[in-house]
Design a protein around this nucleic acid. Sequence first.
RNA 1: GGAGACGUGGCUGAGUGGUCGAAGGCACCGCACUCGAAAUGCGGCACAUGGGAAACUGUGUCGGAGGUUCGAAUCCUCCCGUCUCCGCCA
Length: 426
Amino acid sequence: MLDIKFIRENLDVVREAARKKHVTVDLDRLIAVDGERLKLTAAAEGLRTRQNSASKEIVGAEPAKKATLLDEMKALKDELQGHEEKLKGVMGEWRDLMVRVPNVPDISVPDGNSDADNKEVKRWGEPPKFNFEPKSHVELMEKLGMLDLNRGTKVAGFRGYFLKGKGAELSFALWRFVLDEFGAPASAGGRGGFTPIIAPSLVRKEPFMGTGYLPQGEEDLYKTQDGEYLAGTAEVGVMGLHMDEAIEKKDLPIKYLGFSPCFRREAGSHGKDTKGIMRVHEFFKVEQVVLCEATHEESVKQHEALTANAEALLQKLELPYHVVVNCGADLGLGQVKKYDIETWVPSEKRYRETHSSSYFHDFQTRRLNIRYRDDDGKLKFAHSLNNTALATPRILIPLVENNQQADGTITVPKALQSYLGTSVIQ
RNA sequence: GGAGACGUGGCUGAGUGGUCGAAGGCACCGCACUCGAAAUGCGGCACAUGGGAAACUGUGUCGGAGGUUCGAAUCCUCCCGUCUCCGCCA
């Protein structure tokens, strides 16, 4: 959510933001409704001022005076109720419009109409050259008893899967590997400063509103009969952690390495990625979540750091990847800027998204009411950021495909060998 | 699932119809003392929003939404949340 004052005073900027993000929101209507809101509020406040002063007079007034005042107040009360009725209607529309206003993308975000317009900004590693036709992760993993899709769908329905044997072990190995990478202090070659946290996936409505997944993303979420939703990323639960809190400035930046199961209905992507474990309803994410001081410079610094962290993991896993800066149309409502890291998938002969790194300024924290006391003694909304550390099972796809051998066995990257207890999956 | 208690500022905690935006404490800020710090003393200090160049000032906010009343932190209803006991389960 943006500050209404900011919207009023920078209407052109917000209008341009909506255009760039391809978001439809009637800003002129918002300004008109806001004017109405202010007018009605002022009128109601005037009446209340009178009510408050009369209320003080009534206490000590003599009977005749008191009766006069009481009559006046009864009439005023009716008038006030009329105003409040109108204001209520106006506020309803105002709020509906406000939650649709997008955050302003950074100047460095390219224009574009879809993810096809994202711009590559970096490339690392070389896609492997095979002297045989590379197999898909489905073929490789099923052959090695790592994955069972048929029985996955039997049990869990469309997009269901079982990871078993080395497939399950590989997942545990990766989680442990990531935890160690982030747990080690920077001096020891680790990422440093992240607190591991296992976050709820079953989450109440407020953190979804706060992170911006509701109301717009409702149809991609599973909802329980008790009104909670299942989170599609650990970000939701972790961001909810400090909701309605005031943080000590000395504690910033706060960095979490959140882990949780994730659930997505994948509504609207029915035809996409129907084979294998690229797009599943139920998966796991290790997510980096950061709260920091409310300056653009700090956000940018943390954003680059989060992105570098993910890159470092991929480099240790020896997976070729590239980084794209997402174009306006491919940004979420609250995102200022986003890098997707896409990892090479040999069977598709292209890079596929495995990480997504974004910052929000105070868009999320304003909704979540996460503040810190600044040096001037004032409470300010913190800035928030997040990036994937590692999402399973998707990451298994490039991992097995890039390391496949002609005989269908899979070599294990050095960094993982001690975790998996072998250098070859066969 | 049953019964009960509770929800107040950054934190803690008083407050049961008007004199309450709210005592006291902690934290924080300023000043004094000090070579400096600690301790101490004095003062300041909720948040949001409207008006105003500013000083200042209007309004709202005591979990949320309604209601009673001229007037609600305080009374009533519903909802949400927390805690305790019992039950159930691991």
